[in-house]
């Protein structure tokens, strides 16, 4: 599947010349700060936004919005409570996905729902409850069951664990990894939690202001970052984005990171570095000083 989308509002281009392909069963992490366009890219992939420019291909053919192909793309949201109808029992919410997409004979759909619930570690007793009567972790399990119900090729999971308690996060991360191994479903895992991305992903894409600036295996991207922004993200060092104007409002023919970059050369403000075949969008990846700044909150030892 490939995507090149240009999402335009009257004022700002939120995604700019993004190209990304996922192999069947692959988990790709999308990391970056708030406002980098991670969620917009995910929503565009599942057809929630119509790209201004570019196409989405699934298994070699272009995806049009509202077509049966949409069944093959599913979404899991950050806030599990907000993603369920409060007046519908969660078992019925999963059943609705089967009804809408006409999966299995109607008489067998109840059993399919049961099987999906047990697949994510819940019982039929949970299926009979309303969303408010389940915990955040349980609801996120239901959201996964609902996404898996249509037997998708691919799920966009937008920060699926960031609203969950620490005690529950590991359960859901383990579950997602098991789902991927058992069903072969691919995943775009949107997160700002680099440790979670390292745990789950086969590849990681780093986004900065609507562009992918680095793409590669977790060990390469997080272990030996080449883009100065990735290096900064990994070190958790500060970038005061509020200090200047959003570069997306200015010239597009420049590296968006140039105004914050200590390695900036004249070329960086005149030309946009494309994402090259090695998965890097930077003219000066090496031999330049490290990014200054203040570290993020140190992890627990």
């Amino acid at each position: 599947m490939s995507l090149a989308s240009r999402w335009r509002t009257p004022r700002m281009r939120i995604l700019d010349a993004v190209s990304l392909s996922l192999a069947p069963g692959e988990i790709v992490g999308l990391v970056g700060e708030s406002g980098s366009g991670k969620t917009t890219l995910g929503l565009t992939l599942v057809g929630r936004h119509r790209p201004t420019q570019g196409t989405i291909h699934l298994g070699g053919s272009p995806v049009a919005l509202g077509t049966p192909a949409q069944r093959r793309l599913q979404m899991v949201f950050q806030d599990p409570l907000a993603s369920f109808n409060p007046r519908r029992r969660v078992g019925d919410a999963v059943r609705l996905a089967l009804d809408v997409h006409r999966i299995g004979p109607p008489s067998a759909r109840g059993d399919i729902v049961q099987a999906l619930f047990s697949q994510v570690g819940l019982s039929s007793e949970h299926a009979a409850r309303f969303p408010h009567a389940l915990s955040g972790g349980q609801l996120q399990r239901v959201a996964l069951a609902r996404a898996l119900a249509t037997r998708p090729d691919f799920i966009v999971a937008d920060e699926p664990v960031s609203k969950l308690d620490v005690s529950v996060r590991a359960q859901i991360l383990n579950l997602v990894r098991r789902m991927n191994a058992e069903t072969g479903v691919g995943l775009l895992f949107i997160t700002h939690d680099l440790a979670a991305a390292q745990f789950l992903c086969h590849r990681i894409a780093v986004m900065y202001l609507g562009r992918i600036v680095e793409l590669g295996t977790p060990d390469a991207v997080l272990g030996r970052p080449r883009h100065p922004y990735t290096a900064r993200l990994v070190a958790g060092t500060a970038y005061d984005g509020a200090a200047g104007m959003d570069p997306r409002l200015g010239a597009r023919e420049a590296c968006f990171y140039a105004s914050a970059c200590s390695r900036r050369l004249p070329r960086c403000t005149q030309e946009r570095p494309p994402l090259d075949e090695t998965g890097l969008a930077c003219f000066h990846p090496k031999d330049l000083p490290p990014e200054p700044g203040r570290a993020a909150i140190p992890a627990l030892a």
């Binding site: 915990s135 005690s167 529950v168 996060r169 590991a170 979670a196 745990f199």
Partner: peptide
């Protein structure tokens, strides 16, 4: 509880192939 919580956090940092989980849900 505290021990379980710290163990899951350490498990993620240690890059365990399967994370250490705590049993149950907040109640």
């Amino acid at each position: 509880y505290t021990r379980g919580l710290i163990a899951t956090v350490r498990s993620l940092a240690a890059r365990d192939p399967i994370l250490v989980e705590m049993v149950g849900e907040p109640g």
